[in-house]
């Protein structure tokens, strides 16, 4: 029986890296965009009543960069699917 352990290891490493990267990028984009949202304070279980950590302008820029990176990763995923 031949088991391609090297392929399996690569699948594990690549999929973990891509999935974690995408989730982290989207999460940071959401944090960035939160700077633009009104903060009534304590409106939910995951909401801090404190002011946002970054200014709206900086947050939006960070969010756009993160989302751009996500678009590139998803685009590469589509390329892998098609080719």
């Amino acid at each position: 029986m031949h088991i391609d352990w090297s392929s399996l290891l690569v699948v594990a490493v690549v999929s973990a890296a891509v999935a974690l990267t995408v989730v982290v990028l989207v999460a940071f984009a959401i944090v960035g965009l939160s700077g633009r949202a009104p903060h009534p304070g304590g409106d939910g279980e995951h909401t801090s009543s404190t002011a946002p950590a970054v200014s709206p302008a900086v947050g939006t820029t960070v969010a756009l960069l993160c989302l751009l990176a996500c678009v590139l990763i998803v685009g590469y995923g589509l390329y892998v699917l098609v080719v």
Binding site: A19, L20, V23, V24, V26, A27, F28, I30, V31, L33, S34, A37, P38, H39, D43, G44, E45, H46, T47, S48, T50, P52, A53
Partner: peptide, 17 residues
């Protein structure tokens, strides 16, 4: 991934998240 998503967005606005 789930742990990181919650950890990073813990201070984010709930609606936005």
């Amino acid at each position: 991934a789930t742990y990181l998503a919650y950890r990073i967005t813990a201070r984010a606005a709930r609606g936005t998240a």
